[in-house]
């Protein structure tokens, strides 16, 4: 663990604390999440005023909810999602943008959340794997991944699903080459690609029909 460490605030449980450290957090702290919306402009001003390396309170638009969270400037979006926001579906693989396990959407395009500072997200909407389903109804790509056994160890799966779902947003009838291009940043050590490709093509077909 690097950085200035986890800041304990009132109300944080020991379990949350351990969860945070276990995920190799570099200095992120949970405040009350989702309470008291702060306007984007006010947030930017607060960020501008930050003078030291101490935690800064920001508001992230995650899966349609405004989540208030105190972050140290060096905390990545991936760390903040997994730590104080408790959205552990997003995985951290290489932590260098090389494996894409941490893929989330920012402004509806897939990005590597391990190479994005949380403080740099601003008011751009973030969608994580937890935000893809509509209530109990899975996103067509999620359902197709299950139907095609496109999951082995599952570590790359959330990121891979985010890339595939993003592809269908812009290209509802992709070719196999389109799917390969959209997923070319991902690393699946289990080698589940063929089933994942079939799942995406199937999801595209079923969405059309």
């Amino acid at each position: 663990m690097v950085g200035a460490g986890i800041i304990m605030t009132d109300g944080i449980t020991r379990r949350q604390f351990l969860k945070g450290t276990g995920a190799a957090m570099s200095g992120v702290a949970a405040l009350e999440a989702g309470l008291g919306a702060v306007a984007g402009a006010a947030q930017a001003a607060a960020v501008d005023a930050a003078a030291g390396t101490s935690p800064v309170e920001i508001v992230l638009d995650v899966n349609g909810a405004r989540r208030r969270v105190a972050v140290e400037p060096q905390a990545t979006l991936a760390e903040v999602l997994r730590g104080p926001l408790n959205l552990t579906g997003t995985k951290i693989g290489c932590d260098r943008g090389a494996c894409s396990a941490c893929t989330v959407w920012i402004d509806r395009v897939p990005v590597a959340s391990c190479m994005m500072l949380a403080i740099d997200v601003g008011d751009r909407p973030v969608v994580t794997i937890e935000g893809l389903a509509r209530g109990e109804q899975l996103h067509p790509v999620q359902a197709a991944f299950i139907a095609h056994d496109a999951i082995q160890c599952g570590f790359c799966t959330p990121g891979l699903v985010m890339s595939c779902a993003a592809l269908l947003e812009t290209n509802p009838a992709p070719s196999l080459d389109d799917v390969k291009a959209a997923t070319s940043g991902h690393l699946c050590r289990c080698g589940t690609y063929p089933h994942a490709f079939a799942a995406v093509l199937d999801a595209a077909k079923s969405a059309k029909g």
Partner: peptide, 14 residues
Amino acid sequence: ADLEHYKIGRSREV
């Protein structure tokens, strides 16, 4: 000792 230069076939190699 990283996933940048330890090369593993990915989607386009399948």
